Amino acid sequence: MNGGDFLESKAITLPPFHVVGYKIEADIKEFESGLGKSIYHSLFERKDEIQNKKNENVILMQVSKQGDVPLDIIGHAVGESKYVTYTDQGLESELSRSYDYIYGQWIRETGNEPKDYDFEIWDERYKPESLENEIDLFVALK
């Protein structure tokens, strides 16, 4: 991937939305050692229990604040916010390059400031071990 690919990053505003799922506390190593896939499969198996779904996309929301960790399904309301969004293509194991670019170069060059969370959308294009994998990244901006 060369730097030109990142030109597709753009700032957008999303209206409020609501997510339901699992809340976990883990570092990157724990998450990538299989915890992420395990949670993904658990949520997918229980998707029919969730009423009034707008879609079946899985969202990985990463928040920098620590808190209590409920073990079962929880709900979370996300307020309207501005985001920088970018579609990462390729192996999930190389996703950190996109985050490094957004939190580093993009933030610096555009004069924006990140909030305390970001999220990824895993839809039908999510194939973590394939070069055809696509993940939409959203970093909340102040």
Rank of each mutant, 00 (worst) to 15 (best):
Y40F: 10
S9G: 07
Y99Q: 02
I73M: 07
L95N: 04
A26M: 03
I50Y: 08
E134F: 08
G111S: 00
D136H: 08
V58A: 10
H18R: 14
P114W: 01
I74W: 01
Y117I: 04
V84H: 00
L35W: 03
V69M: 05
I121G: 01
N52C: 13
I135H: 03
D123K: 01
V63A: 09
I107R: 04
F17M: 09
V58W: 05
V84I: 04
W106A: 03
I73H: 05
E80C: 07
F17G: 09
P128G: 00
E45A: 11
D5Y: 12
V19D: 08
K142Y: 09
A11L: 15
G36R: 02
V78R: 05
G34L: 01
E132V: 07
L141M: 10
A77G: 13
Q105S: 12
E134I: 01
D123C: 00
P114A: 00
F31K: 14
E120C: 01
E132P: 06
G111A: 03
R46T: 15
Y117R: 00
T85Y: 04
H18G: 11
L7N: 15
T85F: 07
L7S: 11
D48F: 12
K47R: 12
P70F: 00
F17T: 09
A77I: 14
S9N: 09
L35P: 09
L131K: 11
Y99S: 06
K127F: 05
E49R: 13
L60G: 15
E134M: 08
Y126P: 04
E109C: 01
W106Y: 07
Q62S: 15
G36A: 06
E124D: 10
G104Y: 06
L141Y: 06
L141G: 09
P70R: 02
Y103F: 15
I39K: 14
P128A: 01
T85Q: 10
S81T: 05
Q89F: 05
I50R: 02
E49A: 12
K115A: 12
D27P: 07
K127V: 06
Y117K: 03
E80H: 04
E30M: 04
G3T: 15
E32H: 08
M61L: 12
T110H: 02
N112Q: 12
G4Y: 07
N57T: 14
R108K: 08
D48L: 11
K82S: 13
L95P: 03
L91C: 08
I107V: 12
E94K: 11
M61T: 15
K65V: 14
F17W: 09
Y22R: 04
I28G: 13
Q66M: 12
N112S: 10
Y86T: 06
I12V: 15
Y83C: 06
E109F: 02
D48I: 11
P15S: 15
L137G: 00
R46W: 03
F138H: 02
V20D: 05
Q62C: 15
N2Y: 05
E25P: 04
N133V: 01
